[in-house]
Write a protein that binds this DNA or RNA. Structure first.
Length: 427
DNA sequence: CTATAACTCTCAA
DNA sequence: CTAACGTTGAGAGTTATAG
C-alpha cells in the first residue's frame, strides 16, 4: 500500500517575514498580493482576529491600525529562496518528492516502517524548525487526497495531534468519526461551486462524500470528483509527480499601480510582460506558436465605463525571440486599444508551445540566422540572471515607473540581495 | 455526423 | 489626500466549426 506525506509550511509568507525580524515574533503580520491589493498570508495572530483570507487590504485599515497589524508587499525572491531550502531539507528524508507548490511538498513514504511514520513526521518537523526556523505540519495517509486532509487535521490539532497526523494507524471507526466532523469543502478539489452542488445532494461532510455512490458522483458531478471519492476511501488514484512537465502555456499579467489611459504606457507594459513570458519560455527550451494580448478596465469600479478585449495571433513561425514576440504583441495591442478608458490590467499568454529542438525552418524566414538570434537571447538571459531582472531588455519596455505595480511595503531581500545582509546582521 | 478546435468553468496555491 | 480588490496554470466539459 502506498504511503504519502504532505508537508505544508504554516502561514508561509508571513512566517518568512517574521523570520528575519525578531521584533515581529508575537505581532500580527499579513502579506499582501501584488499591487498591495489583498491579504494572501496571515500570521496566527491575524487569523485569531478573524481576518479572512483574500480580503482587500484597504477594507481592513481600521482593524489593522487598532491591532497594530504589520503588512508587507509580496517579496517573492525571499519566499522562493526559503522554499528551496525547505525542499532541500525534505529531500534528506526521501528522494521521492513532489514539489506541489511554493509551500507544500508530497513525500512518498511507501515501504517505511508503518509503526514509525508518526515519529518520522515529528523528526521532519523538528529538522525544518531547527535548520530554517519555519514551522511545518505533516499529514500522512495512503492517498494524496487523504494526506491533504490529514495535514488539515495536523494544523488544526484535531484528534489530539500536534503538527503531525497519521491516518494509516488510526483505527477505522476513529477515522470515520473524524471525517464526520470535517466539512466537505476541506477536501482537495472541492471548491465553493462544488460545495453547493454537493449540499443540494445532501452531502455536507467528508464522510458523506466518501460513502457516496461513486457512479452517481460520476454521472451528476464529474470523473474528477469520482476519483476524489475513491481517494477518500483509500484507493490511490493520483501518483507522485516528481518531474514537472513543461508548461503548455505561459502567462504574464499584472494590475497597474494606477490607472493607465495612454496607448504608449500599455505598450510598455505589454512589452515588459512579453519579455518576462519569453524568458520563462526559453527557460524550458520551448518556442511559442501563438500569442495573446489582453487588456481590461477595473471590473470592480462602478463609476468607470467597462471595456475588455483580448486578441490572439497564430505566429507564422514558432519563436522564443523577445523582439519578434514584442513586435506581434504591439500589433495586437494597437488593434484592441480603445482610447478613453481607465485601464487597470494587461496580460499576455504564449501558447502552442513546442520544444525548440523540433523547430521547422519556414520557407520564407531567414531574415536573421536563427542561431544568431538564439545566442543573443541566451546572452540576455544570462546577463539578467546574473545582474538582476530587467538589466537588459527591449527598448519598447521603456523606463517609466508610472504603470508599474505598487510595492510600498517590501522587506529587504534578506537572503538573495547583498543589500539585505547588513539588515540581518544588525538584528 | 463526427472529430477536433475553441472556449468556458472550476479549482488550486 | 484619496482611492484602492492577485497571478498562473491545468483539466474537464461544452459549444462551435470544419470536413
Amino acid at each position: 500500500m502506498p504511503v504519502f506525506a504532505l508537508v505544508d509550511c504554516n502561514n508561509f509568507y508571513a512566517s518568512c517575514e517574521k523570520l528575519f525580524d525578531p521584533t515581529l515574533t508575537h505581532k500580527p503580520v499579513v502579506v499582501l498580493s501584488n499591487n498591495d491589493g489583498c491579504v494572501v498570508a496571515r500570521s496566527a495572530e491575524v487569523k485569531a482576529l478573524g481576518i479572512p483570507m483574500g480580503v482587500p487590504w484597504f477594507k481592513i485599515q481600521d482593524l489593522a491600525r487598532q491591532h497594530g497589524i504589520v503588512a508587507f508587499s509580496s517579496n517573492y525572491g525571499l519566499y522562493a529562496d526559503m522554499s528551496n531550502r525547505v525542499v532541500e531539507v525534505l529531500g534528506q528524508f526521501t528522494p521521492d518528492l513532489e514539489v506541489y507548490s511554493i509551500d507544500e511538498s508530497f513525500l512518498d513514504l511507501s515501504g517505511f516502517d508503518p509503526a514509525g511514520l508518526e515519529a518520522y513526521g515529528q523528526v521532519i518537523r523538528q529538522r525544518v524548525a531547527d535548520w530554517l526556523g519555519l514551522a511545518v505540519c505533516v499529514g500522512i495517509a495512503p492517498t494524496k487526497t487523504l494526506a491533504k486532509l490529514a495535514n488539515h487535521c495536523a494544523k488544526k490539532n484535531l484528534a489530539g495531534r500536534t503538527g503531525v497526523c497519521d491516518f494509516t494507524t488510526l483505527d477505522p471507526e476513529a477515522l470515520t468519526g473524524l471525517l464526520d466532523s470535517i466539512p466537505v469543502n476541506e477536501v482537495w478539489g472541492v471548491g465553493s461551486k462544488l460545495t453547493r452542488r454537493l449540499a443540494a445532494m445532501g452531502i455536507h461532510s467528508v464522510r458523506q462524500l466518501r460513502d457516496a455512490d461513486a457512479e452517481t458522483i460520476h454521472q451528476r458531478i464529474s470523473v474528477v470528483s469520482e476519483r476524489t471519492v475513491r481517494e477518500l476511501r483509500g484507493m490511490s488514484c493520483l501518483d507522485l509527480e516528481a518531474m514537472a512537465p513543461d508548461r503548455q502555456q505561459i502567462m504574464c499579467s499584472r494590475s497597474f499601480g494606477r490607472y493607465v489611459y495612454r496607448l504608449k504606457e500599455l505598450e510598455e507594459s505589454v512589452a515588459a510582460y512579453i519579455g518576462r513570458a519569453a524568458e520563462k519560455l526559453r527557460g524550458q527550451d520551448s518556442l511559442a506558436g501563438a500569442l495573446m494580448v489582453h487588456i481590461r478596465t477595473n471590473p470592480f469600479s462602478e463609476s468607470e465605463p467597462q471595456y475588455q478585449k483580448a486578441m490572439t495571433v497564430a505566429l507564422p513561425e514558432a519563436t522564443a525571440d523577445t523582439r519578434v514576440l514584442v513586435g506581434w504583441g504591439l500589433r495586437l495591442l494597437r488593434r484592441i486599444y480603445r482610447p478613453g478608458y481607465a485601464y487597470q490590467k494587461a496580460g499576455v499568454m504564449l501558447s502552442e508551445l513546442r520544444p525548440s529542438a523540433l523547430q521547422q525552418a519556414s520557407l520564407f524566414s531567414g531574415q536573421e540566422d536563427a542561431g544568431r538570434a538564439a545566442r543573443l537571447m541566451a546572452a540576455m538571459d544570462s546577463l539578467n540572471h546574473r545582474y538582476g531582472r530587467g538589466t537588459l531588455r527591449v527598448a519598447a519596455e521603456g523606463v517609466s515607473t508610472r504603470w508599474r505595480m505598487k510595492r510600498e511595503r517590501l522587506s529587504p531581500g534578506y537572503t538573495t540581495d547583498w543589500a539585505g545582509l547588513p539588515v540581518v546582521l544588525a538584528r
